[in-house]
């Protein structure tokens, strides 16, 4: 919205966070009993639900099966009520496809697909409320869901978005900040090694600033990792209590 200052003189953003602060993240694993793995994450007001099925036989055409590794199939869907205006999104539209592709690329890098040849792992992510950083939320949710499903991964995949306003890098952008038109990038990171699983930017940014923004995103992703780690441990703790350790 025009007229809203993304970063005030005192260093506050629109919602009162400082430049490098993350939004409140809440997550839960194992929300769906019938799926192999599921997770629900809330990053600020962005809410994403991820469900993982697999590894299982390849459905559909056998020709697609890869002899040495598993096929990762990601689908992204955004609920019609997820944005401020209710919008009907057809299933196969461009944005969904692209995001699905990105998710696939991300997880192919992280999941140890060699362990499950000729099989398929389905990851379905649905965004229930989109308030900025949908890709990051999807990735984080999917990570948790995959972990919940017990599929081995190299490392967590933690994602965060970052932007650049007034010479400062902002992390974990909300919808207002994303819609303002400032350059923003999404980063998916494997935190232990610091390897980047996916880096995506769709705007113009001077190369001098890239380093700064990238660093901020990486920091934020590491923060997310800490959170997700905690969530997983908490989940395991609870599960083990239930099982009667």
């Amino acid at each position: 919205m025009a007229g809203l200052e993304l970063l005030s003189d005192q260093g506050y953003r629109v919602d009162g966070r400082r430049a490098g602060e993350l939004r409140k993240i809440q997550a839960r694993m194992g929300v769906f009993a019938q799926a192999d793995g599921s997770a629900y994450i809330e990053q600020g007001n962005t809410k994403a639900l991820a469900v993982v099925y697999g590894p299982h036989e390849i459905r559909g055409s056998r020709s697609r099966a890869l002899p040495d590794r598993a096929l990762v199939n990601c689908q992204y869907s955004s609920a019609t009520f997820s944005t401020a205006e209710r919008k009907r999104r057809p299933h196969g539209d461009r944005k969904s496809c692209e995001l699905g592709l990105q998710l696939r690329q991300t997880f192919e890098a992280a999941i140890l697909t060699q362990l499950h040849p000729r099989s398929q792992i389905d990851i379905y992510v649905q965004v229930l409320q989109a308030d900025g950083g949908t890709y990051a939320a999807c990735v984080n949710a999917a990570t948790l869901a995959v972990l919940d499903a017990g599929i081995p991964m190299r490392d967590f995949v933690c994602a965060c978005s970052a932007g650049f306003v007034d010479g400062t890098a902002l992390t974990d952008l909300s919808h207002v900040e994303e819609a303002s038109g400032s350059p923003q990038l999404a980063l998916a990171l494997l935190p232990a090694s610091g390897q980047i699983a996916l880096l995506e930017m769709d705007a113009r940014l001077h190369e001098d600033h890239l380093e700064q923004v990238l660093e901020a995103a990486a920091q934020a992703a590491r923060g997310v990792h800490t959170l997700l780690d905690r969530v997983v441990r908490q989940h395991v703790r609870e599960a083990s209590i239930l099982l009667g350790d």
């Binding site: 490098g20 409140k24 905690r230």
Partner: peptide, 25 residues
């Protein structure tokens, strides 16, 4: 559900130093 929530930790650079601020949403 018992959602687990956490706040952003502090570190140097863009993050706040000191005791850290508890952000309430």
């Amino acid at each position: 559900l018992g959602l687990v929530s956490a706040c952003s930790p502090s570190s140097s650079g863009y993050w706040r130093t000191g005791e850290g601020n508890m952000l309430e949403k």
